[in-house]
Amino acid sequence: MVEYRYLGNSGFKVSEITYGNWVTHASQVGDDAAIATVHAALDAGITTFDTADVYANTAAEVVLGKALAGQRREGLEILTKVYWPVGPRGANDVGLSRKHIHDGINGSLTRLGVDYVDLYQAHRYDYETPLEETMQAFADVVRQGKALYIGVSEWTAEQLREGHALAKQLGVQLVSNQPQYSALWRVIEDKVIPTSEELGISQIVWSPIAQGVLTGKYLPGQPVPEGSRATDEKSGAQFISRLLRDDVLTAVQKLKPIADEAGLTMAQLAIAWVLANPNVSAALVGASRPEQIAANVKASGVKLEADVLAAIDDALADVAERDPEKTYEVSPKTRP
């Protein structure tokens, strides 16, 4: 079964393998398949589910709500986000203004079919809204009982520090950041993680398998597999394209004997790698089929020895991205 970790400097726990429904629900798979996969996650011991209003332009939240209907609410941890344009994309259908946060949380609760979410996250940093306005609006969401904790996604170390200070003044808990993190994408290690450790903020990391590249199924010099994410524009093909270089794919193949020696699949090795970082509370995994969930949860509780971690570092040394300046490029300087 899946193990649990505290989220930030709080008493709230999440399953260290968390189910995320980006690019799958209401997009890559039909509703029946999506619901079956969520139920497989529940059967495997996953109780934490992450979504966002922007996924499939609000439809992914609806599907997740249907999939979780009838479950004991107290036994679930439901996470969602706000920032990106949704609905008809009107002038106020985007960003972290007080209005959009107010409309966003009410819309998410309706679509998910719940009275509250456990964690409400700023999906990016909004340069066009004063941070004081954003944090006050999030604090009000908590005080109204519509969310229990607040988090952010892809904020820089400086943004985390400023947001945390304001949250503390307002008497609410900023407990998490949701960045991209994998053995191939390590840009948060230099600044974001040390700052988060100081402030009592955890990472809920997305793409721990690097959009599937760390499974080893993409081979250097070979066409991408039929039906893979790299062939599906609705399933994040634009995100994976930068990793489909022969030097990256060749380096990734060096991980196979390491995984074999550890008794893991390459995907399990990748997930266990991110969970080896003590500042990571959860690895977000998606799935289009129940059997993918069954395989991925086996990474929970795996403790990688120091020599294994060193071997992974050596294998990917020339291709892993570590530049901390990349953390400043994620949030748009103007609203999309």
Rank of each mutant, 00 (worst) to 15 (best):
T47D: 11
L219F: 12
E325Y: 12
L244I: 06
A52C: 06
T58V: 11
E132F: 03
G145P: 05
L160Y: 02
A34S: 14
R229W: 07
A295N: 13
A56P: 05
V213T: 10
S228L: 07
D323C: 04
Y127V: 05
A52F: 00
M135F: 10
V280T: 02
E198S: 08
V187N: 06
V117D: 01
R161H: 12
P336T: 13
G8M: 04
H100T: 08
L79S: 12
Q180S: 10
P225M: 06
H164G: 01
F12E: 09
S176D: 04
V192Q: 03
V62L: 14
D247P: 02
N296G: 08
W155T: 01
T327A: 10
A270T: 07
E226K: 15
V213H: 06
P130E: 07
G171D: 09
L264S: 06
P225C: 11
D103E: 13
Y328P: 04
Y19H: 12
A41M: 03
A36S: 12
G151N: 04
A157Q: 05
P278L: 07
I17R: 04
L174F: 12
Y120E: 00
T58D: 09
Q71H: 11
T51L: 03
A282M: 01
L264N: 00
A276Q: 09
G221E: 10
A294P: 07
P85L: 04
V274T: 12
H102V: 13
P208N: 09
T51K: 04
T47K: 13
V274I: 07
D318N: 15
I188G: 00
A251Q: 05
V175N: 00
V205A: 03
I271D: 02
P257M: 04
K146F: 01
I240C: 01
H39L: 01
G171I: 08
F12T: 09
R98D: 13
S182N: 09
T156F: 04
Q178N: 10
A56E: 05
K81Y: 00
W22M: 14
A310Q: 15
A122K: 04
G236A: 09
L219G: 11
V86G: 00
L184I: 01
D118H: 11
V54F: 12
A262W: 02
T18A: 15
D313S: 07
F12V: 10
I201G: 01
N177Y: 01
A60W: 02
V62T: 15
